[in-house]
């Protein structure tokens, strides 16, 4: 599903060139559930941005479902992001002036789905993540765990192939974090969406069937748990 080959990403800061990713190669298959761990500055976020088509590698090849996505022009990449990828962030990033279902429906609006249909799908997805009674709530009226559920509904509403989560439980207390983790495992199982989670929490990582660790700009460790 995701094929990253010889990905190098370097930043030029003044005269020095910092290499963050160094000839990284990673293949992730359909329906897989991976965690990515690594120390600060190990390039986790950079890798996530490249996978999420928010950033371009300096060198290397990247295909999603066989399609060379690096060759696409910026607006085509927006469309690919919209269609293939769902994002979940550590601090939720809901739009404060839109209620829960409008937040969840946003990717569909950018796809040009008529409002009534977008609302129907967003509400169905909110129900799916356990927020049937919070459709009209504004983000400020929701708890952290509820906000993250709205964000997950927003990431999933467009039926993406890949769900990218950057520290999705980092801002939540352990009990809620476990609930959110259970939700990830559930949508991976039931919707068949590929899930990549960046996390610092070994407890969260331990529940993932495949565990990656970044180091030295490459995949330093690739563990697969027996199912």
């Amino acid at each position: 599903m995701l094929e990253l080959t010889d990905i190098t990403k370097s930043f030029r800061t003044g005269p020095a060139e910092t290499i963050v990713l160094n000839d990284l190669t990673l293949h992730v298959g359909e329906r897989e559930f991976c965690s990515i761990m690594g120390g600060s500055g190990s390039g986790k976020s950079t890798l996530m941005n490249i996978i999420g088509l928010l950033d371009r590698p300096t060198r290397g090849q990247y295909r999603i479902a066989g399609e060379d996505v690096l060759a696409a022009p910026p607006d085509k990449q927006s469309a690919l992001r919209n269609r293939l990828i769902g994002f979940v962030f550590q601090s939720f990033f809901l739009l404060p002036r839109l209620n829960a279902w409008r937040n969840a429906a946003l990717p569909l609006m950018y796809r040009g789905t008529p409002e009534a249909e977008a609302r129907r799908q967003a509400c169905a997805m909110l129900e799916r993540v356990g927020l049937a009674d919070r459709m009209e709530h504004m983000p400020a009226m929701l708890s952290g765990g509820q906000k993250q559920r709205v964000a997950i509904a927003r990431a999933l509403v467009g039926q993406p192939k890949v769900l990218l989560a950057d520290e999705p439980t980092g801002a939540l207390d352990p009990k809620v974090a476990q609930e959110i983790m259970d939700l990830f495992l559930e949508v991976n199982r039931e919707l068949g969406v590929l899930v990549l989670i960046i996390t610092h929490d070994p407890h969260i990582a331990a529940q993932c069937p495949r565990q990656l660790r970044l180091g030295g700009g490459r995949i330093a460790q690739d563990l697969r748990m027996a199912a």
Binding site: G52, L54, P74, D75, S78, A79, R81, N82, R83, F87, F89, F93, L95, L106, P107, Y110, R111, R154, G158
Partner: peptide
Amino acid sequence: GVRLAIGATRWN
């Protein structure tokens, strides 16, 4: 940033 990540184009 969120809107761009979600799939908004520059024009959006």
